[in-house]
């Protein structure tokens, strides 16, 4: 087995990019170069450096400030949806592994069922029901991430259940719930951390797509996806409006993907890709 350094495995660059992203998101709550929602019609469609580092949009919003505030919205929606999916998915997966039999199989089939709905499709369906907004985006992303966490925690939990210490705990009379809490969860936590990082990256991509279609946070809340939607109208005049948000999304996703790869090397050596 080749030893991989923290830099090569992606752990370090991933942690750096993700850390910067989270830092900028938090910073945007207390400081941005301009108030992100302030319109300055006199400064509309200014190229980068003519007004601010990244220029302005069609209403004279400062793009750097919009990107910073957008980072917060992207991160909180992605974080909330993955937290929700993690809780529901792990509950499904570990319960199925503890129960086995038809009940366990039924729980896993429910997870399969959710998987049949692409995130954008469940986003459209949920928006038809409760209208667009942060809640719709969080639910739609969770619907698609729940089966992932359910499957990963199920297969990881099944292998832990086969270990001798679980047999010993069963012989000692510990309940299946107790064994799950004391032995299964600590042993699958690493695998789940890897998956959470990867899914956070995907969640940011999906949120950008949902807000591009206007299904996520409504205006005037700054959002990377909606910035891209508005940019398409001015593509010929102001290409910078389209370039900057795309780079921001790609960088944020890259950070979480690298972090996931690096963590996998550390915590979950069984998987090869």
């Amino acid at each position: 087995m080749r030893r991989v350094t923290a830099w090569r495995s992606g752990l370090l660059p991933g942690a750096l990019i993700t850390g910067t992203f989270v830092g900028i998101a938090i910073l945007s709550r207390i400081w941005t170069p301009e108030p992100p929602t302030r319109m300055r019609i006199a400064l509309r469609l200014k190229p980068p450096l003519a007004s601010g580092l990244a220029g302005t949009d069609a209403l004279g919003h400062d793009i750097v400030s919009l990107l910073m505030a957008g980072a917060w919205n992207s991160l909180t929606i992605a974080g909330a949806s993955i937290a929700l999916a993690l809780i529901v998915g792990v509950l499904l997966g570990t319960t199925a592994a503890a129960m086995r039999g038809w009940l366990g199989q039924t729980l896993m089939r429910v997870a399969d069922l959710l998987f049949a709905f692409p995130a954008l499709v469940s986003g459209l369906m949920i928006a038809a029901l409760i209208g667009p907004g942060a809640g719709t985006a969080i639910l739609a992303i969770a619907v698609f991430a729940v089966p992932v966490f359910a499957r990963v925690s199920y297969s990881a939990a099944v292998t832990v259940w086969a270990r001798d210490f679980c047999l010993a705990a069963t012989m000692a009379g510990q309940s299946r719930f107790g064994i799950t809490r004391d032995h299964i969860l600590p042993n699958i936590a690493g695998t789940l951390a890897v998956q959470a990082a990867v899914q956070l990256g995907l969640a940011i991509l999906v949120e950008a797509g949902l807000s591009f279609l206007g299904l996520s946070l409504p205006p005037p809340a700054p959002s990377w996806g909606r910035m891209l939607n508005e940019a398409q109208t001015y593509l010929g005049q102001a290409p910078w409006m389209a370039i900057a948000p795309g780079l921001a999304i790609a960088l944020a996703v890259l950070g979480f993907n690298l972090l996931g790869d690096g963590l996998r090397d550390r915590l979950d050596p069984r998987r090869t890709f």
Partner: peptide, 13 residues
């Protein structure tokens, strides 16, 4: 790595 991080609809734009 780059390809997986970039949103498809942004590539389109």
């Amino acid at each position: 790595q780059l390809g997986m991080a970039v949103p498809d609809f942004w590539i389109g734009i």
